[in-house]
């Protein structure tokens, strides 16, 4: 098999995930796009491992580690998103701007529930 096919497919999948990370608003959709990028990297690792005939199977073992890390990442990420949704009432990443640098005079955006939550 030509090496260009898996490598180019992995690059295109990575760029698709990049678009998703930059363009999506829902935090869970951003996490899904990150999963796409991780899968593209895994495809790259396996393709180069099979091409180079590595004795230690480094690429495939790294892909297994990557899959396990992806599972851990999505678990922690979803727990954080659920916590933010419970505290703030939204999971849109561009509405969670309390920690941003104040632009001019700092003012809370109107109409956001739970802007200053009282514990």
């Amino acid at each position: 098999m030509h090496l260009v096919y898996p490598v180019v497919l992995a690059a295109l999948l990575f760029c698709t995930g990049l678009y998703g990370v930059l363009a999506r608003r829902n935090a869970i959709l951003v996490l899904m796009s990150v999963e796409l990028m991780l899968a593209a990297v895994g495809l790259n690792l396996v393709a180069f491992d099979v091409w180079l005939r590595d004795e230690l199977r480094s690429g495939q073992v790294f892909t297994l580690f990557l899959i396990a890390l992806g599972a851990a990442e999505i678990g922690i990420g979803l727990a954080i998103v659920l916590l933010v949704h419970r505290e703030r009432g939204t999971s849109a990443v561009d509405r969670l701007r309390e920690l941003r640098e104040p632009r001019g005079t700092p003012r809370p955006a109107p109409g956001e529930p739970g802007e200053h939550p009282t514990p």
Binding site: A11, T16, L18, L22, R24, R25, N26, A92, D94
Partner: peptide, 22 residues
């Protein structure tokens, strides 16, 4: 509201990255 406002920028960045990488 699935997509945020910086969608054109994201499209440009992704297409540029894809072009360079491919």
């Amino acid at each position: 509201e699935a997509d945020s406002r910086n969608r054109p920028v994201a499209l440009v960045v992704a297409l540029a990255a894809a072009g360079v990488l491919v």
